[in-house]
């Protein structure tokens, strides 16, 4: 099966360096402090933020900064074939740790001592780029909750197939087992916060793919920013602040 046709189109009709269509919705859940729905192509992720609150386990509260907790779950129907998962699997712990790591660098934790910010992520459909989508959804939910952050954090994945770097792999492309990179970036500060790469590749290939992923991050950041601004403008207009 060829992943890039001779005309330069991938299996879903995109160009090699084209992101999937991004969609962001805010305030989708009513009981939490902030929530967001992030969709990249078919990958759909919900994120809800509770906090800042008193830490559940008082002993874990930190005296000078907030405690960030992250829970990850994916629906049984999220990956094509429905599979029942019992409790926490290793993959969910790993993904939750990655999202938490990205958020700890983003949220200004010194402003919220003793508090706990809990982020719950639910994947509704996983079609590649799940880690990136989770981080983006968590970022949008945190911004919706009004928790002070250093900068936006935008994540994007990229891969290398048929000697070509491809941006934002979907599930079919990622399943081949080639190089896959996930990068999370602070766009205004231009700093890479999270970087995960899998599968063997030469250093030059890795550099090319990572650079492409960085550009994807910047594009995703722009889209997320536009969505956030529009949401807040409409909120402020309704309350008469503008």
């Amino acid at each position: 099966m060829e992943f890039v046709s001779p005309e330069g189109l991938r299996i879903d009709g995109r160009r090699p360096q084209e992101l999937r269509a991004l969609q962001c919705k805010f305030g989708v859940l009513s009981c939490c402090d902030g929530s967001a729905l992030f969709q990249a192509g078919n990958t759909k992720v919900f994120a809800a933020v509770y906090g800042p609150r008193v830490a559940d386990i008082r002993g874990q509260a930190l005296h000078d900064r907030a405690l960030i907790k992250c829970e990850y779950a994916h629906a049984a129907f999220s990956t094509g074939a429905a599979r029942r998962r019992r409790g926490r699997s290793r993959k969910s712990t790993e993904l939750a740790a990655l999202v938490r790591g990205a958020l700890e660098q983003t949220i200004l934790v010194e402003l919220l001592p003793r508090a706990q910010v809990e982020v719950c992520i639910q994947v509704l459909f996983a079609d590649g780029g799940v880690t990136a989508a989770c981080i983006n959804a968590a970022m949008l939910a945190v911004a919706d909750a009004g928790i002070p952050v250093r900068d936006m954090v935008a994540a994007c994945g990229a891969g290398h197939l048929e000697a070509m770097p491809l941006l934002d792999l979907n599930h079919t492309e990622a399943a081949t087992g080639g190089l896959e990179v996930c990068v999370a970036l602070h766009p205004a500060l231009d700093r890479v916060v999270l970087l995960q790469a899998d599968a063997k590749a030469s250093v030059d290939t890795l550099e090319a793919v990572t650079t492409l992923a960085l550009q994807g991050c910047k594009a995703a950041a722009g889209a997320m920013r536009e969505a956030l601004l529009q949401h807040v403008r409409s909120l402020a207009a309704r309350r008469g602040a503008i």
Binding site: D33, G34, G51, P52, L112, R114, A115, D144, A145, G146, I147, P148, V232, L235, A236, R239, A241
Partner: peptide, 8 residues
């Protein structure tokens, strides 16, 4: 921020 504000 109009809307939710974290209060501590």
């Amino acid at each position: 921020r109009s809307g939710a504000q974290p209060v501590l």
